[in-house]
Structures are given as C-alpha cells and as structure tokens.
C-alpha cells in the first residue's frame, strides 16, 4: 500500500503549480526533467513505497503557471526552497532528473538546511568539456524523434510515435519545450559557475546515471560526483538518459538504499 494520491494545485508565493502527492512517511521531493512528468508515472508509485512523494510540475511546465519574472534556473532553485518551507517540510530527500537534477543541485548549493539526502540523476547544470564540445546533446537542433532515439535505450520509448499523441498531450509537450527554452537555452543546460559551487553541498549525495545515456555521458556524471564532497556515483543498467522512466523499480531501490531505507 502506498497511501493516498492527491492531485491539486499549490501556491508558492504568487505562483500556483500543479502538484501530485502520493504515499506516506518522510517527504521526498521529485524534480522532473525537461520532458515533464505525468501524474501516473510509475516512478511515483515506486518511490511512494518509501516516502510521501511530492511531484510538482515546475513553473512553466505541465499545467503550472509561469510568472513573468522567472527566467533562470536559480529562480526555480529558490522557488523549491520556498516550496519546502511553504509545505512545512523540515527535511526532504530531494531527487532530480536531468533539468530537475540541475535545479536540485542549485538548491543544494544555496541551502541544504531542508535537504536530508540529494539524488542527481542524469543531471544537467555543469560545464565539463572544453569550449568546442557541448556536454549535453542539443535537443533544440535535433528533431523530437532524434532526441527520443538518443534519450532511451529501450526500443519502444526510443521509437515512440509522439505525433500520435492527442492534442492535449502535444500541447503539454510543447509547453515543456518552451519552458526549457526559457530556462536552459544559453548557456545551454548549464551554469558556468555551478561546478565550482558544488563543493558547498552538505547533504549526502548520490549521482545516478543510465548506463546507456547518450544525451549526457556517464563521464559527465562522474565529474559531477567528483565535485561534490563525499558523494557516490552509480550506474543503472538498461537505461538511457531517464532511468526513472526506463528502470523505475531499480531507481527507487537505489534512492532508498542511499537514504537508509
């Protein structure tokens, strides 16, 4: 039994976001990647076996509002620090995937006061390669089909016919792309100073990577981990860039082990 599920909207300051909360026990905040997250995503139920899982849609994503003043990932980092406070959460496991991992890292370099454990999965946010090589595949100069082919190791997801989605789902897909274009266009998918700031992270950190991530390499993940004091790096087999989608049970198990569950 994973407890009850609620879907609602939640205000943080003047911004109202779409929110799914599922499960019971200590809180876990899951920060979704650039492709957003559905309220019935299997990862939510997996994580809800251990925690009360909070799955917001970031401002500008899904059905969440986007205030005019937001334009950078640091706006989102402060937003989620405020979210924890607004929910009265003293300590949460914070898990972020890709863009969500970048947000989680930006939160943690600002304050780990309310972060018990940190998990960064396929996280964007730092610059590793030299100036003539990008670290993160440019999702804006590839077609959506090409991005899917790079993102997943399993054929069903890699070759999905996204154009067959209904209009509501396609609208959300494009809204998520637009918000990603706002927050991560340039510098592309990173903040030049974040890597140096990662040393400020005080929470025990796990860096998780799909073993077949062709969006951003496992070596990038190792560099991420090396910059966070005391962190561990781990691979999830049978997964591309989104292990929480391709291997939700294994993903939840790694998070649980890291957080002592």
């Amino acid at each position: 039994m994973t407890g009850s599920t609620t879907q609602s909207t939640f205000p943080v300051g003047d911004v109202r976001i779409e929110l799914t909360v599922q499960g019971s026990g200590a809180p876990l905040l899951f920060l979704h990647p650039e492709i957003g997250i559905a309220s019935d995503a299997p990862i939510i139920a997996e994580l809800a076996k251990h925690w009360t899982v909070h799955v917001p849609s970031h401002p500008g994503f899904g059905a969440s509002e986007l205030p005019r003043w937001m334009s950078e990932v640091d706006d989102l980092a402060y937003f989620y620090l405020d979210y924890l406070e607004a929910q009265g959460i003293d300590k949460a496991v914070v898990v972020g995937s890709s863009l969500g991992g970048w947000i989680a890292a930006e939160m943690a370099v600002r304050s780990c006061e309310r972060v018990s454990y940190l998990v960064l999965a396929g996280a964007a946010g730092i610059k590793v390669s030299d100036r003539e090589h990008r670290d993160f595949a440019d999702i804006f100069t590839l077609s959506i089909s090409e991005v899917n082919a790079l993102s997943y190791t399993g054929a069903a997801l890699a070759q999905q016919d996204y154009k067959a989605l209904d209009e509501a789902a396609l609208t959300v897909l494009h809204r998520n792309r637009e918000a990603t274009g706002l927050f991560a266009w340039s510098p592309y998918m990173h903040h030049p100073k974040l890597r140096r700031r990662l040393g400020r992270i005080k929470a025990p950190t796990l860096v998780l990577w799909g073993d077949d991530d062709r969006i951003v390499s496992a070596d990038y993940g190792r560099a991420y981990s090396a910059a966070i004091p005391g962190s561990t790096f781990d691979l999830i087999e049978g997964s591309g860039h989104y292990p929480h989608i391709e291997q939700p049970a294994a993903f939840a198990a790694r998070v649980a082990r890291h957080a002592g569950r």
């Binding site: 804006f140 590839l142 396609l170 897909l173 494009h174 792309r177 637009e178 706002l182």
Partner: peptide
Amino acid sequence: EQHKNPPGFWSPSDSARLI
C-alpha cells in the same frame, strides 16, 4: 522540423495543431 518549430516561437497549442 526542429528549425521550423523552435521552442516558444509558436504557442504550445499552435505547435500541437501544426505538428
């Protein structure tokens, strides 16, 4: 396609219709 429809050029609902 990706250059005809960069993020945010068309509204999300126009993008969904024009896809």
